[in-house]
């Protein structure tokens, strides 16, 4: 059974294992510095579908299938799927798993969805409510643009603080045991609203929530940044990551020796993504493609994955509401 420690953190008594993970990305993401780590780089951004929404669903569906296959399982072996995306009513994930004939829980945590799914999945498994499950998240540049911003062919300009929604999906299969990489702790964060209203500056909107969740995690577990090989946020990008470091430093915590941000890792500086990547699929693909692979190979032993989401909608922004950030985190550890 999971046990609560400190104010917010959940410690898993029998840390659930990550049996396998998979990541499928678009062409631009494949050309980035992490391109070699992804299972599939699709040259067809339509994924053989007639709409961008269906393309995203197809990408997520293939990613879940691939992760299940890599775990040596079949889809029917799972007890449930936890998945989320950025589309209205979470339709990208619903359509991805409608033919899976499995219990399904749609999640919305904006870019924090992958961390939310892993944390909830681990809690379900450690609590005995599920034996094996898949957690997944996806985003597609073209489906996000048309929902949140402008048509693709519209001639607009982005400010330097804007982030680029990744065309990417990641999925992880969690189970009671069976592999060395485990989820040892999880923490669900509170929404922190510091009054940012600029949808082109989501890093600034999310950084305070990442600061809040990480500080609680360090305090609850009695650890400090250097106890971890890597601390990854997803996806604060350049502006938000810089702010997070500054905010934590004000409180006497220095994460710089071990800190990276998924949004900053996914693209190269020459790829013209302004502040960096974003979207549920960005951190999902970086964690499920790159980081979990490194843990599997023993290159990383103890990692914090803190997913950060900007909670807003085009309607809320037009009505003048500010953007709250939320950050959920999991501690991943490679057991000896």
């Amino acid at each position: 059974m999971a046990k609560r420690i400190g104010k917010r953190t959940i410690a898993f008594q029998q840390p659930p294992a990550i049996l396998a993970s998979a990541a499928i990305v678009g062409e631009k993401e494949g050309q980035g510095p992490l391109g070699q780590f992804f299972d599939v780089v699709s040259e067809d951004s339509h994924f053989g579908q007639k709409s961008w929404e269906l393309a995203e669903s197809e990408m997520q569906k293939r990613t879940i299938s691939l992760a299940v296959e890599k775990a040596g399982l079949q889809l029917s072996d799972l007890d449930c799927i936890l998945a989320g995306d950025l589309l209205n009513q979470c339709i990208g994930s619903s359509l991805a798993s409608v033919d899976a004939h499995l219990p399904y829980l749609g999640l919305y945590g904006a870019c924090s969805t992958m961390a939310q799914g892993m944390a909830m999945g681990a809690a379900l498994i450690d609590g005995g409510a599920a034996r094996k499950l898949a957690a997944a998240a996806s985003s597609h540049f073209c489906s996000a643009e048309r929902q949140y911003r402008f048509p693709l062919a519209y001639g607009g300009q982005r400010p330097p603080t804007a982030q680029w929604t990744a065309t990417a999906a990641g999925a992880a299969v969690l189970a009671k045991g069976g592999s060395k990489v485990r989820v040892t702790h999880a923490i669900f964060g509170e929404m922190v609203d510091m009054g940012v209203k600029d949808a082109n500056n989501m890093g600034s909107a999310m950084a305070p929530s990442a600061c809040d969740t990480l500080e609680h995690l360090f305090e609850d577990t009695g650890t400090q940044p250097t106890d971890y090989d890597r601390i990854l946020t997803g996806d604060l990008a350049a502006v938000g990551a810089d702010l997070l470091v500054t905010l934590l430093r004000k409180d006497g915590i220095d994460i710089t020796p071990v800190y990276s941000d998924c949004g900053s890792l996914l693209y190269g500086s020459e790829q013209d993504t302004h502040a960096g990547g974003s979207g549920c699929g960005c951190s999902a693909a970086v964690i499920c493609g790159h980081i979990l692979q490194e843990m599997e190979q023993g290159k990383l032993h103890k990692v914090i994955f803190a997913g950060t989401g900007a909670l807003m909608s085009p309607t809320s922004l037009q009505q003048g509401q500010s953007i709250a950030g939320v950050c959920h985190a999991v501690v991943l550890e490679r057991m000896a």
């Binding site: 300009q157 400010p159 330097p160 603080t161 510091m194 009054g195 940012v196 500056n201 600034s204 950084a207 305070p208 600061c211 809040d212 500080e215 502006v239 810089d242 702010l243 500054t246 905010l247 004000k250 409180d251």
Partner: peptide
């Protein structure tokens, strides 16, 4: 984190790069 919304606004605006206005124009 012990910042008010105003203090945070000043901080993030300082950290957010401006558009290159002269080049854009």
């Amino acid at each position: 984190m012990n910042l008010t919304k105003n203090e945070y606004e000043r901080l993030y605006q300082k950290k957010s790069p401006d558009s290159p206005l002269w080049r854009d124009m």
